[in-house]
């Protein structure tokens, strides 16, 4: 984790006259910085600490990749839902109760033997929250953001994924408010599985296009 140097702490204690970054007057330790903001905002009546707990509970316990997995498993097993999802993903998943912040405009893209889809946000960390939750650290990392567009196949190899040369790779850079869900390929050997059993093997990484769905040995 980042630790401030003595130099930057000293600079912090006495901001330069031309330093127009107000954040530099906050405490150097990040945990204390957050606490300071929370304290000031609570004293001003601008935030309700119980609301913060409710937001955290939502993304820690309620909204996560299990939602996306339920969507994918249903798309694999219900041709009508699959068609609806590909035509208008926002409407199709809203029907399942999955709509909200960072998922207002959804598009589903499907992996086949011919095309593999992979999603990145090179400019920040845009991600379909209602379906996959808060993005993992790797998705927000400089390495992924910088490299996923230029050398996606090398990046995929770092996830243990090797694509055959006949498969075209399409990388979707989420530069707007459209959020992409990758529908991975359904693995062989899952014929007749229940939706719940299928959902259990669909990983978050597969729904970003950085993993494949496999049948556990």
């Amino acid at each position: 984790m980042f630790r401030w140097t003595v130099d930057s702490a000293a600079r912090n204690a006495a901001p330069m006259p031309h330093d127009d970054h107000d954040h530099s007057v906050l405490p150097p330790d990040p945990a204390l910085r957050v606490k300071a903001l929370e304290t000031i905002l609570t004293e001003k009546g601008l935030i309700d600490p119980a609301a913060l707990d409710a937001i955290i509970d939502t993304y820690q316990n309620k909204v996560g990749p299990q939602n996306g997995a339920a969507v994918v498993a249903r798309a694999w097993t219900e041709p009508e839902f699959h068609a609806a999802l590909m035509a208008d993903a926002t409407a199709a998943v809203s029907e399942m109760g999955f709509y909200g912040r960072q998922g207002e405009h959804l598009v589903a893209v499907e992996n086949t033997g011919d095309v593999h889809n992979m999603v990145v946000c090179t400019l920040c960390s845009c991600y379909p929250w209602p379906l996959l939750g808060i993005p993992p650290a790797w998705y927000k990392s400089d390495a992924y953001r910088a490299r996923a567009v230029r050398e996606p196949r090398v990046v995929l190899s770092e996830f243990g994924v090797t694509l055959p040369d006949e498969t075209k790779l399409r990388v979707w850079d989420s530069t707007a408010e459209v959020r992409y869900l990758v529908i991975p390929r359904r693995p062989d050997g899952t014929e007749g599985w229940s939706v719940d059993d299928l959902a259990a093997i669909i990983s978050r990484d597969a729904m970003v296009g950085c993993g494949l769905v496999t049948v556990p040995a």
Binding site: W138, S141, F159, S203
Partner: peptide
């Protein structure tokens, strides 16, 4: 930028408590 460091599938949503507070304060 080097290799992508892939989180374990069961890594916590928020690695530190203050990450969660930071997200919540920002949304609020």
């Amino acid at each position: 930028d080097g290799k992508v460091e892939v989180d374990a599938p069961d890594a916590p949503v928020f690695a530190e408590d203050w990450h969660a507070r930071a997200l919540a304060v920002t949304l609020a």
